[in-house]
Design a binder for these strands. Structure first.
Lengths: 414, 414
DNA sequence: AGGACTTTGTATAACAAATGGACAAAGTTC
DNA sequence: GAACTTTGTCCATTTGTTATACAAAGTCCT
C-alpha cells in the first residue's frame, strides 16, 4: 500500500477512542513501535496490530523504517503520515505577525515573523498573512488543499463561537469581519479557528512550555494591552461568550486617567506599555531623569518600553520607580484574581516579559501582600520562557485541537 | 430476588460507563421503563435488559411496579433501590446548620435547620450535627452503616484534597481539624467530603436551581462574609489548593478600614453584613436616620442587616444609601471578575439575598458600567431562588458525586 | 560459528459482548 | 373477539478482544 498522497481528508477528522489513543501516543513520542503502543494502552497484541493496520490503511499512520533492537528482532517504527496534510498557526500581535507551518503532529516545520500594523483594515493585513503562509508552504512543498487546519490568534475580544472580533479597541476596523471566511477563500479545505491571542499563548505554554501538566494557571500578556489566558481543569476557559481573560480593563484607580475603553483608571491605561512610556517621557521632560531625557532625544522624541527598561538596568531611579509602580498595579489586580481563581502558576509574557526582576518582584510582592495565604503558599509567578514561540505554538495546537475530534465522548458526570 | 436490605456496599461505588448511563437516566426521571433506557442509550433490547438485570442483581436497581400502558403491554418500572443506602448533606453557616437526609438518587427525605455558633470548638459543634443526623435517620428508619456518603459545607477556606480548613477567619479553632475523621467515627461506612460552603451552594444551584445546564456561572454568597462558588465548563472550579472563590478579601479601597484578615479595604470589611450594620448604627447615632435610631433602641443597641433592609423598605434614605454603597462595591469587584471569567449568570445568595431590588440594581449598574460589552450583553445577575436549600441540596449532590465513581474515564484531549 | 535466549510480528482458536430477529405475554382499540 | 401495539425474553449470528502458538529476526555467550 503506497500512500504518498492523500488528497481528500475531510476536516474535522473524526477519531474513535481507540484511534485517538494511538494518535496520542504518537504525538507525544514522535515515532513509536507497535509494542510501545501495546504497553501504553494495555491492549492485546492482536488488537493493537489490527487497529494500527486500520489507521495505516486510512492514511493516518505510516511506516518510519526500522527501530533499534532491544535484544531481539528489530521493531518497525510508526509515525503520523506527514503527507496527510499540514496545519498553520498565526499569531497576530498589535505590531507583528508570527506564522508557523506545522505537520499534523504539531511539529513546526517553518516559521516566520515580521512587523505589521494591526490598525489597518483586515483585508490587506490578512492578505499579507496568507501570502506568508504560501511562502512557507512553497519551502515545504505543500499545496493549498493540503492545509487542513489554521489557528489564528488576534489581540482583541473574540466571540469564539463565531470567530469574530467584538468591539476591539486596538483594531476597530475588524469589528464583525469574518476572519474565518476570508482565510477560507485561500484554503478551502482548512478548518479555521480564531481565538484571542492570549488564549493561544496560554495553550502554547500548556503544550510546549512550563504549563505542561498544570491544571490551573493564568497566562498574563503585558504589551500594548494587558490580557490573560485562563486554564481551568487543564482546559482553556473562554467563558460564556468567549471573551474571558480581559483583565486590562479592571479598575485600579477610580480617579485614574481615562482609558480608550471609556472608563477611568483601567489597569491597561495605567500599567501597560503606553502608560510606561508616557510616564517616562514626563520624567525625562521634568528633569527627574537625565538618562531618559538622553534616550528621548536620541530617539527623536519617542520612547519605547524597552528604553525605560534599559534605563532601569543602568540604575536610573525614575525608570525603576515607573516599572515598580506598573508591577504593583498589575500585582494588585492579580492578587484579586488569585483569590478568586487560585491558580498554581502565573506566567507573564508579551513585550514586557524581558523586563527582568524588578517588575517580577513588585508583582510578586503585591500579590503576596493581598492574597489569601492558602492561595499563595504554592503559587509560582514567573516570566514565560517561551517568548514569541508561545503564540504560534498555541495557534498550531488550537488548530489541531479542532481538526481532530474524538467521537463518542461519554458523559463524565453522573 | 428480594433485596430488602443490602448491608455491605463499599464506598465509593464504582460504576462502568454502561451502568453510569442507566443510573443517570434514573436520576433524571425518577422511575423509568427499560424501553425508555433503550431509547435513551440507543442500545439493543437484549443489552439493555441484560445490563438492567445485572444492576438489579447487584442491588442498585429495583422493581417499582407497573407503569402505564402506551397501547400495549404494561411496562415494569425501575427505580434506584432505596434500601441500598442514604446520603447526608450538611451546610454549616456562620450562625446556623442545615442538615438533610437523602436517598442515593439525591431526593431529600428529611430536612432540619437550627441556629448554631460556628465560633465554638469543632467537637461539640460537629457532635451536635451528628446528633441531628441520627435524629433524621430515626425518622426514616435508617441505620448508621447505611449512610454511604456525607457532604459537608463549611464557611471558610478548605483544602479540598485534605478536607481541612486552613486559616479560617470565622472559625480559628477549626484550623487543621479533621472534620472527615471526626464524622467517620460515627459513620464508618460513609464517604465524607468537605468543601467550602459557597461551592456547595453553587453545586446546589447547578443541580436543582437556575444554574442547570449553565456552563459558566458564579454563585456569590453575601452574609457575614462574602464568597463565590465558581462553575467553569459545567464543573466546580476549586483551584489548585481548593480555595478558589475567596472574593471577600479583594481590595476595594486601599484607604479603607482594616479587615480581620489584616489587610485594608477588603470587600468583606466594607460591604458584608457587619459593615452594613455598623454603618447603620453610625447613621442612627449621628442623627441622619431617625428610623434606624428607633430600630436600634428597640433592639437594645444592636442592629441586624435585616433591620437595615426593613428601614430601606420604609423609605429611609440613609438605609437606602448604605445598601446602595454595598451594592456598588460588590458590583465593582464583580465587574472585574466578569471581565476575567465571563460568566453567563451570577447568582446572589446568602443572608443578604432578601434585600430586594435596591441591592441588585446597584450591583448590576456597577457591573454594566465597568465590564466589557461582550461580557455583559448576555449576562444575567439575579438572586438565587433556592434560599437555604441551595446549601443542603449541594452538599447532598457533593456527597453523591464522590460516592459514585465512574471507572475507565477515557482521556478527552488528544 | 552455533546454540540459547529475546523481542517482534502474525495467524488462529477460544471467549465475550452486542445485535437482530423470532416469539410469547399482556395490553388497547374498534 | 379480532387486529394491532407495546413489552420482555430467548437464541443464533456477528463483531470485537484475548490468549496461545508459532515464525521471523535479532542479541549474546561460549
Amino acid at each position: 500500500m503506497n500512500h504518498t498522497f492523500q488528497a481528500r481528508i475531510k476536516a474535522p477528522i473524526l477519531l474513535n477512542s481507540a484511534e485517538a489513543e494511538i494518535i496520542r501516543a504518537l504525538r507525544r513520542q514522535g515515532c513509536v513501535t507497535s509494542t510501545d503502543i501495546m504497553r501504553m494502552t494495555g491492549w492485546s497484541k492482536a488488537k493493537t496490530a489490527q487497529d494500527i493496520r486500520d489507521l495505516v490503511e486510512k492514511g493516518f499512520l505510516m511506516d518510519a523504517g526500522e527501530g533499534i533492537s532491544q535484544g531481539g528482532r528489530k521493531p518497525r517504527l510508526l509515525c503520523i503520515n506527514r503527507n496527510l496534510g499540514f496545519v498553520v498557526g498565526v499569531d497576530i500581535g498589535a505590531t507583528s505577525v508570527d506564522v508557523a507551518l506545522a505537520d499534523i503532529s504539531g511539529s513546526i516545520l517553518q516559521r516566520y515573523s515580521e512587523a505589521a500594523d494591526v490598525r489597518q483594515r483586515p483585508e490587506p493585513f490578512l492578505g499579507r498573512c496568507v501570502e506568508i503562509v504560501f511562502h512557507l508552504m512553497e519551502l515545504q512543498g505543500c499545496r493549498a488543499d493540503q492545509i487542513l487546519g489554521i489557528g489564528i490568534g488576534v489581540p482583541g475580544p473574540v466571540d469564539f463561537a463565531r470567530g469574530v472580533l467584538v468591539a476591539p479597541p486596538l483594531m476597530p476596523d475588524w469589528e464583525n469581519f469574518s476572519i474565518r471566511g476570508f482565510v477560507k477563500q485561500s484554503f478551502p479545505n482548512a478548518f479555521v479557528v480564531v481565538d484571542n491571542d492570549v488564549n493561544i499563548m496560554a495553550l502554547g505554554e500548556q503544550r510546549a512550555g512550563d504549563g505542561i501538566n498544570v491544571d490551573h494557571f493564568i497566562f498574563v500578556k503585558i504589551g500594548t494591552g494587558i490580557g490573560a489566558g485562563i486554564v481551568s481543569n487543564g482546559k482553556i476557559h473562554r467563558g460564556s461568550t468567549g471573551c474571558a481573560g480581559d483583565i486590562g480593563h479592571i479598575c485600579v484607580d477610580k480617579n485614574g486617567p481615562i482609558c480608550r475603553c471609556g472608563n477611568t483608571g483601567c489597569l491597561e491605561a495605567m500599567a501597560a506599555g503606553p502608560a510606561i512610556t508616557e510616564k517616562a517621557i514626563q520624567a525625562a521632560l521634568n528633569g527627574s531623569s537625565p538618562l531618559l531625557k538622553n534616550l528621548l532625544d536620541q530617539n527623536g522624541g519617542v520612547l519605547r518600553p524597552e528604553d525605560v527598561n534599559a534605563a532601569c538596568r543602568e540604575g536610573d531611579q525614575a525608570a525603576l520607580e515607573i516599572i515598580r509602580a506598573s508591577g504593583q498595579m498589575i500585582g494588585d489586580v492579580l492578587a484579586g484574581l488569585v483569590n478568586f481563581f487560585n491558580p498554581s502558576h502565573i506566567f507573564i509574557g508579551g513585550g514586557i516579559a524581558n523586563f527582568g526582576n524588578h517588575l517580577l518582584v513588585s508583582i510578586r510582592r503585591a500579590v503576596l501582600r493581598r492574597s489569601l495565604p492558602l492561595a499563595t503558599t504554592h503559587l509560582s509567578i514567573n516570566f514565560s520562557r517561551m517568548g514569541a514561540d508561545a503564540g504560534v505554538t498555541g495557534a498550531v495546537a488550537l488548530a489541531l485541537e479542532y481538526l481532530f475530534v474524538i467521537e463518542d465522548q461519554p458523559t463524565t458526570t453522573l
